[in-house]
Design a protein around this nucleic acid. Structure first.
Length: 482
DNA sequence: TTAGGGTTAG
């Protein structure tokens, strides 16, 4: 195998000029070396790379592939696809290295039809059994929600490699089918850290944090070294379960292994400590961190809010702005929810209003939802309705639901009855709506109406599932059915 | 001749 000749960054302009003068620029191999030297010294220098390529009279597939790769690294999938058009136009023949790059660009831009056409081209050119192309095709179909097509492509190759298995597994995860994902995982002839990561994060994303923890300990039992992303998934799982010892174990592991804590991991740690009720450790982690990005501030503001410390959350927000960190959407969700948990109605109003006026962030549905919840919780029902009326988007069932709950709290039977009926009409198989409407009737002595709501619920076959609460005692997570 | 794959939390 011939090694590429790489030129140092400082020599590049000179070498480029010399190639042009001597005519060596006509040699696609040397021109390719020049391009690769540039991109190795500055991987995101796509515009300089583009200029280089424009000066190459003969452009090989290698040259196009290298530039396609640079566009993808710089998160410019559309430019990569335009470059492919140019490649075909210039009669450069794509090779097996071209297709994984294009399939990634098409997955990112979610272009199913173009991907299907490209799939035909791959078959015609005879690249479909290449393991890189094969895994990329499965990933393409899986990430566009076409898991059956992903499975069909997977089945076409008998000796699928670990990447093809992982891509299929991840396709099932994306479609929410965790049991099929697990079947693929269990059937893998070999696994690597990427496959473990895909399965563990799949469990976390789809609300199965307990399974994620079990799988994590199984992985650790095999003496595999967890990656950052696996540890971050485990921190989320621990936060969901309120499993403080597991969360602390991850923190200890990171410190023992002297792994550098990225901002993302610090954010996950703060979130985990706050959700597990250890606000002191959350604060310590936050305060020890020197380079605080907006996500880390948000995690701490949200953590304080979760514990009803709205006043401290408000002070922290001011510190953040004073520190030169510009708030984002999530900052206001955390702040509004902190005010809601602390009964700080006027602060909430002011915050909601200043979002767009001062910080130029237009409130999204989640901000309206927080604000309506805050107003409703503290009895400002008419103001909450006014906000629903003026919000630019269609109110979600969650918004109507939180207002309905407030009607029950404040005994507003007329509004509550109208909302309850509306919600049942919208979601006839949601037991909570029936129960809350029946309770509302019962609280005002309208027993007949309460019974008829219960009867309607029964006749439609809607059953109330017991609620579940989790608590961790001495390292064991217990669940309670309510 | 050089290069291309699957995972990534809050």
């Amino acid at each position: 195998m011939m090694k590429p000749i790489l030129f140092s960054k400082s020599h590049l302009p000179l070498v480029h000029a010399r190639f042009i003068i001597s005519g060596q620029i006509h040699d696609p191999f040397l021109a390719g070396n020049l391009l690769e030297s540039l991109l190795r010294s500055a991987p995101i220098a796509h515009s300089a790379a583009r200029a280089f390529v424009s000066s190459f009279p003969r452009r090989s597939a290698f040259i196009y592939n290298t530039l396609l790769h640079a566009y993808l690294i710089d998160n410019l999938p559309s430019r990569a696809l335009h470059l492919f058009d140019e490649m075909l136009h210039c009669n450069a023949v794509p090779n097996k290295h071209t297709f994984p790059l294009l399939l990634k660009a098409l997955a990112q831009t979610r272009q199913l039809h173009c991907g299907v056409s490209l799939h035909s081209m791959i078959i015609k050119l005879g690249f479909s059994s290449d393991q890189f192309v094969h895994a990329s095709l499965i990933h393409f179909y899986g990430s566009l929600g076409r898991v059956l097509d992903a499975r069909r492509v997977f089945n076409e190759n008998s000796g699928s490699g670990v990447s093809a298995f992982t891509a299929l597994l991840s396709g099932y995860v994306k479609s929410g089918n965790l049991s099929s994902a697990r079947e693929v995982f269990d059937g893998m002839p070999e696994r690597n850290l990427v496959s473990w990561s895909a399965m563990i994060s799949g469990y976390v994303q789809f609300g199965a944090p307990g399974e994620a923890l079990v799988l994590f300990w199984e992985m650790m039992g095999m003496n595999l070294r967890p990656t950052y992303s696996i540890l971050a998934s485990i921190l989320v799982a621990a936060a969901e379960l309120g499993a403080l010892p597991e969360g602390k174990w991850v923190h200890g592991f990171l410190e023992r292994s002297r792994m550098r804590l990225s901002s993302n991991l610090k954010t996950s740690l703060v979130h985990m400590y706050a959700k597990c009720g250890d606000l002191t450790s959350a604060k310590q982690t936050f305060e020890r961190s020197r380079d605080r990005n907006v996500d880390l501030w948000n995690a701490m503001i949200g953590g304080l809010g979760l514990h009803g410390r709205g006043r401290e959350a408000s002070v922290l927000f001011s510190d953040m702005v004073a520190d030169g960190i510009w708030p984002d959407d999530m900052t206001f969700v955390c702040l509004l929810s902190a005010y809601s948990h602390s009964g700080m109605v006027s602060d909430g109003r002011e915050c909601f209003e200043s979002m767009s006026r001062v910080y130029k962030i237009e409130p999204k549905e989640e901000h309206y939802s927080c604000m309506i919840d805050l107003l409703g919780r503290f009895g400002f029902l008419m103001e909450a309705i006014h906000l629903i009326e003026i919000m630019p988007m269609r109110p979600s069932d969650g918004i109507w639901g939180s207002l309905f709950t407030s009607c029950g709290t404040y005994g507003d039977i007329v509004l509550g009855e109208a909302l309850g009926k509306h919600l049942i009409e919208m979601e006839p198989y949601e037991p909570g709506c029936y129960v809350r409407l029946a309770n509302l009737y019962a609280s005002s002595g309208r027993w007949k109406d309460a019974l008829s709501v219960r009867a309607a619920m029964k006749s439609r076959g809607v059953e109330l599932e017991p609620g579940c609460s989790l608590i961790e005692v001495d390292g064991v997570v217990h669940d309670f059915l309510l």
